[in-house]
Amino acid sequence: MVDADLEHAYMPSIWNHQHLSPDEVLAKHFAIVAAESEKARQELTVISDIRYGTTPKNSMDLYCSGPTVKAGGVLFAYVHGGYWQALTKEDSAYFARTICKSVENSVFVAVDYVLATETVYGSEAKMKSIWEQMTPAYAALRDVADRLDCSGIFLCGHSAGAHLVTAMLSGAFEPSQRKSLFRKLKGLWLLSGVYDLVPISKTSVNDPLQLSKEEIQDCSPHNRVADIVHNLGATTSCSVKIMYGEFDPPAFHKQSQNFFEEVNNYVQTQPDYVHIRIKPPVEVKDRDHFDLVDYTVLEENYVLTDVVEVLKRHLQESQTFRFTEGVEGVETVDIKDVLVDFKVK
């Protein structure tokens, strides 16, 4: 049964500050991200449908400013939102042009996944399966980064996508597996995320999901903090940035703040994890749930500006390290050649 108060609290379209109706703001957002993603396909080199699982939706698209990349570059992966029932990777490359053109030697990857509304996949369209898709998705990202000789992996997710980025980090891996998987992970951006599914189970969002008690428990990031932190602990250095719009629903503010406190408190109990850098959530002024990511011009998008600055800083530090340490690597890598027979290790 839908709880009317929670239904209102967890519908970001109701809270928008753009003087639009809920339907209008959703239509505007979908139109913007689709148009910007199409521009990326027209202007960038694209490798489509890199598979990481058994269905066509278990795939990702890679974007780059040209057909080759130099050793030591960065991979930025984006997981779209849509409350686990809308959008696709084809709609989710709207940051690609700005990142690939602003950050030399970068690749952008849009990650797709089976949605709860895609009943053609049967039982796979459940939260547990959506959550579990993220483990092979991240393994594929790591493998792509290795093939391209990237020095760092950066992850970003918006709304339900932020929830799924944490899913990538939630596996109970052995220490040796953690080091292999996460050694190149350098940063996360969690944008207007959902980290506790209990309230979602009492809204209309749950109609296609039909969350079970087990899924609410196992697929809520705030219940997986220990695994997430231990996996982040396998990195050599990693920043975690949590952001939301000033005009996001207050419930989303609270979810982000609570998740930060839970993760930060656990990190403080682990003296060996001083390299995990997590800062208090940032409230992005004059932005709501949708225009937090809609703008693709750097001067108008706080998130993109921060991403570009972080990626550039990492590249500078990485290049300095490779030079001083005499690290050898292939000067340039042809993307299509190294990914033509791609399979997850």
Rank of each mutant, 00 (worst) to 15 (best):
S129P: 11
F76C: 01
T119N: 07
H289E: 15
R224W: 04
T305Q: 15
E36S: 06
I99R: 00
E38Y: 00
L75A: 14
L315E: 12
E262K: 11
T235M: 07
L311G: 08
Y302T: 11
R97V: 06
A162G: 10
Q177F: 05
D248L: 06
P221I: 09
E261K: 10
S237V: 14
V274Y: 12
D291S: 15
E118Q: 12
Q85F: 03
V344C: 05
F182S: 06
F252C: 05
D334G: 02
V263M: 10
R313I: 00
I153T: 07
K312W: 00
A139P: 02
L185G: 02
E132D: 12
K39W: 03
T68P: 03
C150W: 00
P67I: 01
M243G: 11
E262W: 02
A172H: 03
Q133C: 07
T98P: 00
Y10W: 13
K126F: 01
Y83C: 12
E36W: 01
V263S: 05
T324A: 02
S237C: 13
H29W: 01
S170L: 04
L6A: 12
V274G: 13
R147I: 04
V297W: 10
S237A: 15
K57Y: 00
Y52C: 08
V103Y: 04
G326W: 05
E309H: 12
P250F: 02
A71I: 02
K312Y: 00
C156H: 07
R178D: 07
G187T: 04
W189F: 12
C100M: 04
E325M: 12
A71S: 13
L115G: 00
F252Q: 09
V333I: 15
V194I: 10
A77F: 01
Y138T: 11
I242Q: 14
S37P: 00
T88R: 09
Y266V: 09
V144Q: 13
D23Q: 13
M1S: 13
K184A: 10
V274F: 11
S13G: 08
A31S: 05
E325R: 11
V103L: 03
H230L: 15
E104G: 09
D288E: 14
E262Y: 03
T235G: 08
D337L: 10
Y195G: 06
G82P: 04
I50T: 06
A71Q: 04
P175H: 06
V267D: 10
V33W: 00
T88V: 01
R277E: 15
N206H: 08
A86W: 00
A162F: 05
L197K: 03
V205H: 10
V274D: 13
D23W: 05
Q177C: 08
T324R: 05
V107L: 03
D207F: 03
P281G: 13
T98Q: 05
E214V: 02
S48C: 05
T98C: 04
F95L: 07
